[in-house]
Amino acid sequence: MSQKSLHLRLGTVVVLCALFLVFYAIPSFVFAPSNVGNIVLSPLFWPFVLAGLAGLVGAGLLASGVSSDDTPFEDADTGPSDGPAGWLRLLGLATIMVLVMVALPRLGMVWTSMLAFVACAFLFRTRHPMIAVICAIVVPLLLYAFFAHVAGVAIPQGHFVRLP
């Protein structure tokens, strides 16, 4: 990846986002009372200013992209050695995160964390599976003990197995 391609790509995305904000998102999702006398006091003012600035930065990125040379970054990420498996692991991690959100209120934080720990350790191809399983049990329990009994946080317990 070179600075030219990066800035052209970013600039295009940012300009489109700025246009989306100005013409759709801000008018639709920012509400202002009808009796605001001066525009600078309106709740709409600040988001519009920021969207305008974003448009300027996007234009700046495009201009910079056009004028930059196409030399790749010296430390550019060449990706993992195992090719498409990297993308699959990213998808796997995203799935784990979604499942964590679904499972937290149902299984409780401790059990969900244990499963997430094991899943992540194996997703990262750990060379120490036994240590990973032991840590997956011990770490969430220790954190539960601290947050529930020392910090007084009501850690979600779930519908099935409840901890003291």
């Binding site: 934080m109 964390s113 750990t126 120490h128 770490v139 954190l143 947050f147």
Partner: peptide, 19 residues
């Protein structure tokens, strides 16, 4: 082992942010 450390960090983040 960093491949065990990072899942631990994830669990810590979940607890910490919820708290």
């Amino acid at each position: 082992p960093k491949r065990i450390l990072m899942p631990g960090v994830l669990v810590l983040c979940i607890y910490g942010v919820f708290a």
